[in-house]
Design a protein around this nucleic acid. Sequence first.
DNA 1: AATAAAAACTAATAAGCATTAGTTTTGTAA
DNA 2: TTACAAAACTAATGCTTATTAGTTTTTATT
Lengths: 196, 196
Amino acid sequence: MGKIKPGKNATKKDVIIQKASALFKNKGYASSSMRELAEAVGVEAPSLYNHIGSKSELLQAICFNVADDFNAHLNNTESLESNTVSKIETVVRFHIQMMLNNFDELYVANHEWKQLKEPFLTSFLTQRRQYEKRLVDLIERGIKSKELKVNNPYVIVLTILSAVRGLEFWQQHKKNIDTQVLEDDMTNHLLNGIIK
Amino acid sequence: MGKIKPGKNATKKDVIIQKASALFKNKGYASSSMRELAEAVGVEAPSLYNHIGSKSELLQAICFNVADDFNAHLNNTESLESNTVSKIETVVRFHIQMMLNNFDELYVANHEWKQLKEPFLTSFLTQRRQYEKRLVDLIERGIKSKELKVNNPYVIVLTILSAVRGLEFWQQHKKNIDTQVLEDDMTNHLLNGIIK
DNA sequence: AATAAAAACTAATAAGCATTAGTTTTGTAA
DNA sequence: TTACAAAACTAATGCTTATTAGTTTTTATT
């Protein structure tokens, strides 16, 4: 594991955020100390404060970066001219890919957002509810257009989001199964079920 | 919220574990202090140590109680004489009911097991892998008997377990939808999909 | 009422925490 | 080479933590 040096594409602040993501993922936000983070970065703890404001600022950066990514992608998807099932499939696949490619940040955002301080906690929760609401609306459109069965739309959204989130357990098995198989199988399961 | 007094069905230790579950769920294990727990129980912090050995012992109790419940139920299910799909449905419904009825403990076990100390961490992980393995075997039997589509069995197990786990987000919406509708819709989604 | 055990209390310990202050080193541009 | 700024360092602050020791109060039993 070579240390990633700043200057090319990332500032030192970016490196700190990235190392913080991995640390918070492995040990939890509250159980991670600035000393440990400093060691991962390769400096003494107080030196971190030349680049960042506080420990909680790191958590904020991680959580809101993730939220922004999902919002941006949903904006794109909604502007597509395709049927609803295709849009849903696009969203599901994007969630899966995010779990596989931005695992540390996503894990931290999913697990540690409760540790955000106000007003960020409220802001984050509001954003997430709005995002869920947009997905619920998408599902409802699919039901109205008779593309989807008549189920409770929120339960559907919850099931999909939760299933994908569960890919955090996937990491161990990464080597055994191709990620494309994983993406295809899970997408298919969530849309078509498993019963013949 | 009346304080629950011990002596009837529960010892004081049981009350402490229950209060700890709620506290750890709300604030996270590492961010919860013994002072806060003591306040919830209604004593001073050092008094807790007349009943428990340590803070980490509380986490252990919570995590392994949950694990034991799931193992016991799977033992029962496997001894049933019914087809595989029925068994899977039984397991899915039990997971959903556990999420709805033992929410605090389950949430803590799902979120804070990483904070377990050795050798409990290893033991917990081993138990969980064994449990997952048994579910994978169950799915494989369903595929062999042609009850189920040919998908990767571990992906199926992961999808099901994760989806049910996501009911932690359900709590807010409890009032709006009947839990029986929730159980039926989610079970149906996970077995039959959502596409007409 | 007397005795023993259980469980509460107060006070103290030692360690770890994020962060600040003040100083020195390093890197860059003139 | 000199000057300036960025970023590192050491030392210290004040706070919080889980837990232990020692003592007193409460509860149950004889």
